[in-house]
Design a protein around this nucleic acid. Structure first.
Lengths: 343, 343
DNA sequence: CGCGTCGATTACAACGTTGTAACGGTGGAA
DNA sequence: TTCCACCGTTACAACGTTGTAATCGACGCG
């Protein structure tokens, strides 16, 4: 059944080089000393036959496949597409391949992923949780190493890589305040808030408080989802308030582009009638009309730190071993000022 | 070394159910008749132990892993993110997992992917080629089944799934003509054109010709890349022509959003001063200001057809066998009219 | 009552790899 | 010369799965 086309095996190389299978294996992996002339003969044979190791067999034997899974709520959301690209690049630097899962933001699906998918092929999992809460995660069977990429509630039994969302949200809001805005709305609060929403809301409230402004729930209406459509819809409702806002802090750039769209429909001039800040710094933010001031998490750094943390767990390199306390690793961010707040 | 945590094996299930390993395997795969009471016992044991098949072992034995690779030029390009999402969904319907590769539009990388990556774990490859040309592809060793997703030049030894780009581009241009525009620019021509660029240009030229308008190369300046930035830059240069265009057909929505941005900077009113049509129907097109008229390929259908074609090749289900002639499979598209051409 | 048949189940080998332990040969020291 | 040590190499088993062929038991027919 299996055709010769499928590629040479250790056995073929061994025959060609006149040595045993194991010697070839040793040459390939550098796992034991091999005399130089033998080494050369083997390498030549490998080259001639175009040998490449069979990942399945290797995985079966060693328990390592070199494949890690990245699960995001929505790959079509530009932020996650950009993050995924950064993770793929970071993994490649470390010799790993990435398998991308789209959980659709579904808690069950996230849990399934956190438990190592349905397939032990995966060496480890990077999860950007959206709805998953810590009680569920706490009960998971620790089948594979797990690193969370993004916000978290309370304690979750896994390493986390994230930026300081509260501080970033506070900075974004403070920026609007510094422009003289006093009636600042927030778009992104959720009915049943998950961590991202909660933390950004906290930062927003803190900044207001520091400026002596109280939190007014009407100015932070709940959104059903983090989509452009939701952003537009909520923006429309905000503009219909008796006292509409003079600025808006959107918890994601996607919400912000929707808000931009709605403001445009009402003929508002941004930033003069309404200043706008987003969050994520997706590529689109630079090209929106007007371009979008936003919080820019260092996605490359996030990806690198996350891959590094996961590999450390996989390879058991964590100080203190597998039962080491779960680390929280912070990446950088910065506020990028563009037209939507440039008066 | 290998821990029990890693999950139950056929052997464990067999012991729990009091049958042989092979019977469990038969239940799992449905490959042989199993008496109903035995079946139930086995299923219960599987459920209790949380057994999941080991892909590597299965792959090692059968040569099938259930994993297909999808290689796109740029995952951050919304079109490809949306396409990837559709492919993941289509693959899941068929019981496959998708491994996403980002080739960066690099020809060498695309060739590597076309040859089945460096890893024989993959059952087959779906490739969205950008720079790869047929001469390179022709010389590849056919290590894994390959299906191309997107345009092609001439003959390539692989099945293709695509929409009729020439017709779509002609329709987009014809739409602009129907609005009364007569000086229609095109953004997306490449210095050394690959198939996508060439075909959309052909459609554009055909439509002009049918309206009795000649092709003017100045109105179709070359773009270095398919990015927002390139779209904006080319748009600026077009607006500086002695006789600037009254409409633009952009070969992708990404280019179009860049063009939109540049037009906005010049204070132009779209569509009154300049009508704009894009291509791809990325989500952003609906929320751009103004929203974007565009060609909408049926991405779900593209993904389904591509996965189906690939699985057919993998399973040798192709009429005529592995050496069957390579098929060209067309998916649907439609022109979606939005504000950017609604006068 | 015995034989044949058929359906359900099982033992065995193999996929390609690598860790372990054993092997053989060479060179130096006693 | 004899023995030991050590280095390079090897045989073997095992990872979890599935196809093949053999086995077992029961039932129907002659």
């Amino acid at each position: 059944m299996r055709k010769a086309l499928a590629g040479a095996r250790l056995k073929d190389v061994a025959e060609a080089a006149g040595v045993s299978i194991k010697t070839v294996s040793n040459v390939v992996r550098g796992s034991a000393r091999v005399a130089e002339p033998t080494r050369e003969r083997v390498l030549r044979a490998i080259d001639e036959l175009g040998y490449t190791p069979n990942a399945s067999a290797r995985h079966l034997r060693t328990g390592r496949s070199g494949i890690i899974a990245l699960a995001v709520p929505e790959l079509v959301a530009p932020y996650f597409a950009e993050l995924a690209t950064a993770v793929i690049a970071a993994a490649k630097e470390r010799g790993c391949t990435v398998l991308i899962e789209d959980t659709g933001g579904d808690a069950d699906e996230e849990l399934r992923v956190a438990c190592g998918l349905s397939d032990p092929l995966i060496d480890g999992v990077l999860l950007s949780p959206l709805r998953l809460d810590q009680s569920q995660l706490a009960g998971r069977e620790h089948r594979v190493p797990l690193v969370l990429l993004g916000e978290r509630d309370y304690e979750v039994p896994a390493d986390h890589v994230l930026i300081d969302n509260v501080a970033a949200a506070r900075e974004a809001t403070a920026h609007l305040l510094s422009l003289g805005c006093r009636r600042i709305a927030a778009i992104g609060r959720e009915q049943t808030p998950h961590a991202t929403s909660q933390q950004r809301l906290d930062g927003y409230v803190q900044a207001l408080k520091e400026a002596g402004i109280g939190y007014e729930e009407r100015l932070a209406p709940p959104v059903p989802t983090y989509t452009r459509a939701a952003g537009a819809e909520v923006m429309r409702s905000l503009l219909e308030l008796p006292e509409p806002p003079d600025a808006v802090f959107c918890f994601t750039d996607l919400l912000a582009t929707g808000a931009l769209r709605a403001a445009h429909e009402r003929g508002l001039d941004i930033p003069r009638d309404l200043a706008l800040v987003g969050f994520d710094d997706i590529e689109e933010a630079q090209f929106a009309v007007p371009s979008l001031t936003t919080i820019a998490p260092d996605k490359r750094q996030l990806a690198r730190l996350a891959v590094e943390a996961l590999l450390a767990r996989i390879e058991g390199r964590v100080a203190g071993g597998a039962e080491a306390p779960h680390a929280t690793i912070r990446a950088e961010y910065e506020l990028v000022v563009r037209e939507s707040t440039r008066l």
